[in-house]
Amino acid sequence: MPTIWDLHCHLSGVEGRTLDERMGKFVAIADRMGIARVILSMGVPWSQNPTPDDFRRQNDQVVEALTHWHHRAFGLAYINPHYPEESLAEIERMIAQGPLVGIKLWVARRCKDAALDPIIRRCGELQALIFQHTWLKTTGNLEGESTPFDLAELAARHPAVPMILGHAGGNWELGIRAVRGLPNVYVETAGFDPTAGMVELAVQELGANRVIYGSDAAGRSFASQLAKVAGAKISVADKEQIYGRNLQRLLSPMLAAKGIKP
């Protein structure tokens, strides 16, 4: 049985009167699927272009949700590059001084923007996880929504800093190729329909050591997203890397610094 760590989880979409109650239900469902650890980001409700007060509120919620679940969950700090100074301060509060292990960048500002450079440099110093949502939508992206090409630009400016291409760009045949030549970029499997062939292509083009399982639960089903790996025509060893080992490797310096055993 492989160790499964899920990079991409939210508490939105899980019922419960309190965050702790939501976590209890969420972990119970994760248990049915054999998921050992979930990585939470963003709060309830979330917002696409949060003010500093709002992203701080959401991060406080993540910390609260972790309270009784440190053995099963980690958290990412949600920040907004429209507010670089406040975002850097939040990284200090939540990651350098707090319990969270990386950052989540969503759709507020395209990540190729130079405003992200100080954020990336600081995360690099801390060895904090950098997780950037990306999509390349046939129907058109949101104004601040990053494409895989945007992340490729950012990653090329910071070749020593690992970062993760969320959703593999959605249109994964294009997203995977957009970052193929950037060894510091990992692709994540979450948050698009369980279309067959994505994981096989990612392993073929990038190697299994650059592919990370995530679900985008609770909005997505664990089942549909796990299936991308479970049903892929790749080796058992490659599946083990994708399910958990790659994420464990990326997080190991941060966890060691915080005295957390995986």
């Binding site: 067959a196 089942a223 299936a227 049903g231």
Partner: peptide, 18 residues
């Protein structure tokens, strides 16, 4: 919706719900 979707997705949905 196989083979466009991975067949395991539907199978695992039966496991995910109690």
């Amino acid at each position: 919706h196989a083979p466009f979707f991975i067949h395991e997705a539907a199978v695992l949905k039966l496991q995910e719900s109690e």
